[in-house]
Design a protein around this nucleic acid. Structure first.
Lengths: 348, 348
DNA sequence: CTGAAAGCGCTAACAC
DNA sequence: GTGTTAGCGCTTTCAG
């Protein structure tokens, strides 16, 4: 009876919480702890009466299961999944998170998040905290990790999904695409469109190797076409609208005769577009503008932005599903490629 | 010795994980489990030698603490904090999350997130999952919760911070501002600017009572000024750029003589601005445009958007800090008001 | 189909 | 300053 429990609590100085546990339910329903455990977890093979009695008793006692105890007692019972993203304020990663969150909650898992601002050290620090909660698996963003991170992941031997950039040899599972190829594709496209004096504006906060990979692919494509990149402006800032605006201003001050600029992402490209508008630079006639990422705003601009659309939500969903499939021992392919799509807007 | 452990594992069929625990470290360092526990948690009062031996042993065995066990054994030891937001894809909430994440990780807590798309039922479902992990506290968005949510929160008796909208009587702690007042303030402002035929375009996905509160405050202010709202267009959609574009198109089709439109948020307002540009409607001469939220893009537009800036990151930080302060038994004020700021741009 | 016993790794409380 | 004991709530294993 719950009244016993209350008295018990008072006797113990009211220090213990009055929460019902499996044993309380067992007593209330006149069965054993184990029967309650099995019924509540949805096993089969009970008389309907037993099941009903247990369920009723649990409801009566306002039972709140204790997953801490469950996961502790049987370590494969954890339904915690950790995920680390570069920046929580990035619109793109918001969509990735959303994809992960929906898939995981549908599958009965809980999401723990952290951000590392593209720092491998911060990622490791986050991982050490998360691992101490014995999660079922983790999702990391990017392919560059510290040695400590890799060691720790091997040691704890849980499923790991690396998303966003495809690596030659994933630690375990990977979902994403090649940033390098995004850069190559855009470089080739701009050349095909007749652009010849092409610049780049970026904001490679910390060690954003993925943004770096796009730039490198871009440069390679331009060089191969015989029109190597004319100028780059890489700010030490976060890749937002303002930096795009000022970055373009600075780049054009140095190199006024550019005919096209590729930006680190759509936010920056939109900032650049705004700069052009404020200075009377005609786009695409005087200057072509290209972005990357495919944020929603890019397609409602007066001139639709030429950019690369990244399947953000799909990546999140695929990552979560791959992780869970692996947990369930199902066959999973190591690498899932989620293709990006270069969309021709009106700005190049 | 770790070799014993390995043999032990092999004997047991290699089913058990080879992870070191406090007892292994104790054996390795020649002290007791408790000493190890105390040293590792940073208590004071040990010979430097003991401390050094323990730390060395832990490092040698690649010890990974088990917080599951710690939180399970001593329920106040949980450093898990749950947070539920309406939408993970909202730019504003990305910044709130960032504020929470930074503050919590600095303070040694881990963040579990979920989203509810403004549905109180989804929030309750999420909370039931989270509560089973015995978190130290939770952060909820908004002031409208299901009865089940409120019951559960009372039952588990942990700190709760409601953010974003201020409620008359918070469940526990609250950090935010009044959405109603945001609407009133903008209404009064537009009247002062001489606008008289004012409309509204929104996208009240599900039961977004906070967006609704802004609209109500707005309508009240206009009515009090003798110029009640002329028309509203409320889409059943998520409040993004496209809906802003089409929402304005639909509104103007019905009411071509409006002189100003207030939007549900900045995304929608920017969509509306794009519509104006595409149709040759001059802003602010022919039509005034006002938004809400203060997204970064709003201030790099060719014409800076008139909007209400919400201190997103500050709200997240304050929420996390209030929660932790309460956990530590410090004095915390129940309600923290984080003022918004109406910024006059060039669109009204 | 159901129950009893053991143990997961840690910490609180108390003993020395 | 350091060790001993008990127990958190659940699941696994094995017995019936």
């Amino acid at each position: 009876m719950s009244s016993e429990k209350v008295i018990d609590n008072i006797d113990r100085g009211a220090a213990r919480k009055a929460k019902a546990n499996l044993e309380d339910i067992a007593r209330e329903a006149g069965v054993s702890k184990m029967t309650v455990s099995r019924v509540l977890r949805g096993s089969t093979g009970f008389s309907d009466q037993t099941r009903a009695r247990v369920v009723a008793a649990a409801a009566r006692l306002d039972y709140v299961p204790n997953r801490l105890a469950a996961a502790f007692g049987a370590d494969h019972a954890s339904t915690l999944v950790g995920m680390c993203v570069p920046r929580l304020t990035s619109g793109l990663f918001g969509h990735v998170l959303d994809g992960v969150d929906r898939a995981l909650s549908r599958l009965g898992y809980q999401l723990m998040i952290g951000s590392n601002n593209h720092s491998a050290e911060d990622e490791e620090a986050w991982l050490r905290q998360i691992v101490s909660w014995r999660p079922a698996g983790v999702i990391l963003s990017g392919r560059s990790h510290s040695a400590g991170t890799v060691d720790l992941l091997r040691q704890v031997a849980m499923p790991v999904v690396e998303i966003w950039d495809l690596t030659t040899s994933p630690i375990d599972l990977a979902v994403g695409f090649s940033h390098h190829d995004c850069g190559v594709e855009m470089g080739q496209f701009l050349i095909r469109r007749g652009r010849r004096k092409i610049g780049f504006v970026g904001a490679l906060s910390r060690s954003d190797v993925m943004g770096q990979a796009r730039l490198e692919g871009f440069q390679e494509a331009l060089a191969r076409a015989g029109h190597p990149i004319a100028a780059t402006e890489v700010l030490q800032d976060s890749p937002g609208f303002y930096p795009g605006y000022y970055g373009l201003e600075m780049l054009l001050a140095r190199c006024p005769d550019l005919d096209c600029v590729y930006f680190h992402n759509d936010e920056m490209a939109i900032g650049g577009l705004t700069y052009c508008q404020s200075r009377g630079i005609r786009v695409p006639e005087d200057l072509g503008i290209a972005g990357w990422g495919g944020m929603e705003a890019a397609s409602v601009l007066p001139k639709r932005l030429t950019t690369t659309i990244v399947p953000t939500t799909a990546i999140g969903k695929a990552a979560a599903e791959a992780l869970v499939a692996r947990l369930k021992g199902e066959d999973v392919q190591d690498v899932t490629v989620t293709p990006t799509r270069l969309v021709t807007g009106e700005t190049v």
